[in-house]
């Protein structure tokens, strides 16, 4: 039985279902309880589940995220909201030195079943400090898992899996996607981490993307087909680490041309990793160099007119695609 709900509601359903399923799951973050969430993802959860399960934290990311890491070592499963992923930088030591390495440094005696979630995106005219997209930074850390859902369906299924996972999973959402409506079935389902999704089939070109760049690619694919008769396949990574290389390679072997698209900066980004992997493992299948589209390589600009330009637009993807087709 299908219905349409928006991305934020899908995440909220995942949180509520997991709170009900497992008494060790609790939510903590700034304004998540009585204020109902800065972006209303957690709306109504405090009223329903109370102080123990939905906790308002003071503005103190290193404190409450480190606390969650410690609590997880004893078996709790904190789901910690960052109002923006940009704020992760004040909790870096806890999120990397502690969460990512405590299992390793204990020789496997400990594990850290935490989720840190919140929006990680530019495009909302809030300036560079609030517009970071750190999936590449955290994806660089063995021990961490990073997930970037593009649709409501994926957001719900991936969030439930993230909460049940026994390793630290960092879920990067997008404020510009929170209000987007998608078909989401009633009832419970999960989506495994590390499994990409072909969001649109095509035979001429592969567009690889994650997060909101997937939506950009879907629009670009429509334009390419309507105006240039190019059938683009859109591969949504969904999960950055673990990474589904096979689905990317299968698509490349079918289409022989690739554009890797991301809203992050180009240098040492996820796209760089994917591009290197494709040239190494599918070199003979390529009919053109792997092309990339990323955000323009500067801190996120405030000016609304220009921030639109700084992030990849469907036309940017089309232009890049035409350059290799």
């Amino acid at each position: 039985m299908s219905r349409q709900i928006d991305y934020r509601t899908a995440i909220r359903e995942a949180l509520a279902e997991e709170i009900e399923r497992d008494p060790n799951v609790f939510i903590i973050g700034e304004e998540v309880a009585q204020y109902n969430g800065a972006y209303k993802v957690t709306q109504g959860l405090w009223a329903k589940y109370g102080d123990k399960r939905v906790i308002d934290a003071p503005i103190s990311e290193a404190g409450f995220i480190g606390m969650g890491v410690g609590a997880s070592m004893l078996g709790l499963r904190p789901v910690m909201e960052l109002m923006f992923w940009s704020f992760a930088y004040v909790a870096f030591d806890q999120m990397i030195n502690n969460a990512a390495t405590v299992r390793y440094m204990s020789g496997g005696l400990l594990h850290c079943p935490i989720v840190v979630r919140g929006p990680a995106n530019g495009g909302t005219n809030v300036g560079a400090t609030h517009s970071h997209t750190p999936e590449n930074l955290f994806g660089n850390m063995p021990g961490l898992k990073v997930v970037c859902p593009a649709t409501a369906y994926d957001a719900k299924g991936l969030m439930k899996t993230a909460i049940r996972d026994n390793d630290p999973v960092y879920v990067m959402e997008n404020t510009k996607l929170y209000g987007e409506l998608w078909d989401v079935p009633e009832g419970e389902y999960t989506i495994p981490l590390g499994v990409a999704d072909v969001k649109r089939s095509g035979s001429d070109l592969t567009l690889v993307a994650h997060g909101r760049a997937v939506i950009t690619c879907l629009k670009a694919a429509e334009l390419l087909e309507a105006e240039h008769d190019i059938k683009a396949e859109v591969v949504d990574l969904r999960s950055i680490r673990p990474l589904d290389e096979q689905t990317i390679l299968d698509s490349v072997r079918k289409t022989h041309r690739v554009v890797v698209v991301e809203e992050n900066k180009p240098f040492c980004g996820v796209g760089a990793q994917i591009t290197a992997m494709i040239q190494e493992k599918a070199f003979d299948d390529l009919d053109a160099p792997v092309a990339r589209v990323s955000a323009i390589d500067a801190p996120a600009i405030y000016s609304p007119r220009l921030e639109e330009v700084q992030l990849p637009r469907p036309m940017d993807v089309v232009t890049k695609a035409l350059s290799i087709c």
């Binding site: 606390m67 890491v69 410690g70 609590a71 997880s72 070592m73 078996g75 806890q94 030195n97 204990s106």
Partner: peptide, 25 residues
């Protein structure tokens, strides 16, 4: 015994979390 932590002060939120978990449980 939960470590053994190398970064000065980095263990202080973890200790808080351990005690938080006891109270939660």
């Amino acid at each position: 015994f939960w470590g053994g932590h190398g970064i000065v002060g980095g263990q202080t939120p973890l200790g808080l979390g351990i005690a938080f978990a006891l109270k939660y449980q």
